[in-house]
Simulated scan of single mutants.
Amino acid sequence: MKKETTGRGNSAQIRRRSDVTIRSGLSATNSDIDNYFPKERKFRASMIGEIRLDRSIHRLYSPVLDGKSQIIGKPPAPIEPKVNPHVTEFLEAAKMPFKKKPNYQYCFLRSIQELNQIDFPLHKLNDLHKIIPNTPYAHEDSYRFLRACKFGNTAEVLKFISKDQSLVYSFDELHMTGLHWAALRNYVSVAKILLINHSIVDAIDVNHRTPLLLACKKNNIECVKVLLSNKANPRIASNSKKLPLKVTKNTKIQEMIKKFLLIHNNLDALPRKNREEYWETYAMLYLLNMK
């Protein structure tokens, strides 16, 4: 029994070896090599199509390149399609940093408030650019007028305003008006003259700072009172998100600003016909009684 099993085993091994010998003896032509893909274990031919070879056949019947060096494939050249010029323009614009989306409703309401404040007739809106400038030192006497405001020269300020009242809207390269400078340096008499002549109480400079914020920052309590009595808005923040309440260390100024924050919030909630009465009753009376 042992001899028979041994004989059978030997005959099976002989058959396997003969198969290997036959397969390894087959010659691989160049066309076979070109059509064979070892990594995929696939053979492609024009007549029979694609054949997936068994793993065992793949191990025994891998074609030899006859000493030829393996050719490393090159990546295809990049495709450069023609781009629409409008698309290119859009992509260039997309690289630019995003700008803040303006709050048009807020800007519109602010504009109406300022027009009411300067007492400008709406039917003459086309002539507004002649009064309110768009560039620094636009008026003829802008430089000398702003210099007089900077140094608190009341007589000079009155002289220039009597000649041209629209000078109160002029500003310098920092977009600071005469009222900004008066508030910053605590020239109370200059601030009063400018406000009587319809200077914009909530004018903003390049850093979005109002005269009230500058007066609070310098703890100029008298100028703060004058500005608040002329309805300066304590809710307008600078570009750095600073409010008048946060820039002052004076406790009296902080108390006033807190009071007027509440007053302005109440004014917004009231009907327009009741606002003036509320202002006179609560705002002006509060300032008069304040020591």
Rank of each mutant, 00 (worst) to 15 (best):
G152H: 06
L167Q: 05
S27Q: 09
K39Q: 11
N274P: 00
N233A: 02
H139L: 11
F98Y: 09
K291S: 09
S69H: 09
P211L: 08
N219R: 02
E4C: 09
L270W: 00
E173G: 05
S240R: 12
G25C: 08
K2V: 12
L158Y: 05
V87S: 01
K163W: 10
L288Y: 06
A94Y: 11
K150P: 01
A138D: 12
R185D: 14
E156R: 14
H86R: 15
L270N: 02
K95P: 01
F260A: 03
L53S: 05
L184M: 14
D141N: 15
Y143I: 13
C149A: 02
N219A: 10
E50D: 11
S18Y: 10
K130Y: 08
M96C: 07
T251H: 06
K130V: 09
R55D: 13
T6E: 08
K259G: 03
R17Q: 14
D172I: 08
I57V: 14
P75N: 04
I22E: 13
K258P: 02
G49A: 02
R144S: 13
K218A: 13
P271T: 00
S62L: 13
V226F: 00
L270F: 02
A28E: 04
Y36T: 04
K192R: 15
M1V: 14
N10Q: 15
L91N: 07
I263M: 06
N266I: 13
N186Y: 05
K68N: 02
G178V: 06
I71R: 13
F37C: 07
T281P: 00
L270I: 03
G178T: 07
I161W: 02
T210S: 13
F260R: 01
R55K: 12
D205Y: 15
R144P: 00
T248V: 04
T21I: 10
H129M: 07
I132E: 07
L228N: 04
P133G: 01
T177I: 07
Q70D: 07
Q13P: 01
P75Q: 04
L194N: 05
I204Y: 00
K242E: 15
H264T: 04
P81Q: 12
Y143G: 05
S18G: 07
K74A: 12
H139D: 12
N219E: 13
I72C: 08
S199H: 03
N230C: 08
S170H: 02
E156S: 15
S69F: 09
A191Y: 04
K225E: 05
R272E: 12
R52A: 11
E276Q: 09
I236L: 10
P76G: 02
K242P: 00
A138L: 08
R59C: 03
L65A: 12
S170G: 08
S27D: 06
N265R: 15
D205W: 06
H58V: 06
K2P: 03
N250Y: 08
N266V: 11
F43K: 09
N274D: 15
V83A: 11
D32R: 05
L60N: 02
K150W: 02
I33Y: 09
Q105T: 15
E89P: 04
K252A: 05
Y187L: 05
K101C: 09
P271L: 01
T21F: 11
L109W: 07
N197H: 15
N233H: 06
V87G: 01
Y169E: 08
A148M: 12
V201A: 01
I57W: 03
I200W: 00
P76M: 07
L174C: 14
V201T: 02
T135Q: 10
F43E: 01
I51W: 11
P97T: 11
L125A: 07
